[in-house]
């Protein structure tokens, strides 16, 4: 009697994730097979549109939960998309820098600076979505409880939100990426990417764990107590297996990338400035 419940966004995510692997496989094939090269653009666009739908699905896992004050918001879907742009690009820049260093290939400033400028735009965009989400919640009195919890007295969630997500993970990298000195320094750019990733982890923690830790409002205007932790903030600390499981996923993805780029010939031999930009004029030798 098992069947696929197409009303469940969770069930859709299974299709979307597995389907994405298929779509990317086609994209890779179009890129590798010379005869198919003319379809590369179309396949790439297909993969891009698919991942937009995919992340809409992931955000909607939370956005569709009508019961919880912290979720139940359409903004979850686009916010998750921009978050994936931001955290994804930060990881991409770090992976690109590492791969080119390890394989002694030239990686020019032109492309790197282009990417870090884009990262800055994405980081700012995430902040804009976070602002819009909280402003909307703060406007309606019914959501003041959960907002107070996240923004003021939620303990670890409040600290993660202000210090790690916004301070260390958004404002600091934004400052670094756009300031004249560190903004043109590779080590600082790599460091900024790392900060964006740490901020992203904090943001996911605040959304996923914080949103569930806050008790659901069942009896407006009443204090609720029971033997089942009603009206009490849920207590949760990730266990070691959970932590390792999460880390393992990242490790698996990175390992697949390293092996993939070694076995398949994808990495451009050079991303030096003159290769990337036809109008590039080499700096005058001093």
């Amino acid at each position: 009697m098992t069947y696929y419940n197409f009303k469940s966004i969770f069930a859709w995510n299974i299709i979307l994730y597995i389907g994405f692997m298929g779509v990317v496989a086609v994209y890779l094939w179009m890129m590798m097979e010379r005869k198919m090269n003319r379809f590369t653009r179309a396949a790439g666009m297909g993969a891009f549109i698919w991942r937009l739908i995919l992340t809409t699905g992931t955000g909607s896992i939370f956005g569709f939960l009508v019961a919880r004050q912290g979720y139940d918001a359409a903004i979850m879907a686009p916010m998750f998309i921009v978050m994936s742009f931001s955290f994804g690009l930060a990881i991409f820049i770090l992976v690109l820098m590492a791969l080119y260093k390890w394989s002694d290939r030239p990686l020019g400033d032109a492309i790197l600076f282009r990417l870090k400028n884009l990262l800055g735009v994405f980081v700012a965009a995430v902040m804009y979505f976070v602002l819009a989400y909280h402003l909307t919640n703060l406007y309606g009195t019914e959501n003041h409880g959960v907002e107070r919890f996240i923004l003021l007295d939620g303990g670890v969630y409040t600290q993660l939100f202000w210090i790690v997500q916004l301070g260390i993970g958004s404002l600091l990298p934004l400052l670094l990426l756009y300031s004249p000195g560190p903004g043109t320094n590779r080590a600082w750019i790599g460091f900024s990417c790392l900060l964006v990733i740490i901020g992203g982890l904090a943001q996911m923690y605040v959304i996923i764990i914080g949103g569930q830790a806050y008790p659901m409002e069942m009896f407006p205007g009443k204090e609720v107590t029971s033997t089942f932790f009603d009206g009490v903030v849920a207590d949760y600390t990730p266990s070691l297996p959970e932590f390792v499981l999460g880390l393992g996923g990242v490790a698996l993805a990175l390992a697949a990338t390293v092996v993939g780029t070694r076995v398949l010939r994808f990495l451009p031999a050079s991303l030096a400035d003159e290769q990337v930009d036809p109008h590039h004029t080499p700096a005058k030798a001093g």
Binding site: K222, E223, T225, S226, T227, F229, D235
Partner: peptide, 18 residues
């Protein structure tokens, strides 16, 4: 393990804040 022990029905006490 009160946080996860099953309670299919529970008694809750309400107190009006006002």
């Amino acid at each position: 393990r009160p946080a996860t022990d099953a309670q299919w029905i529970r008694k809750v006490k309400l107190k009006d804040r006002q």
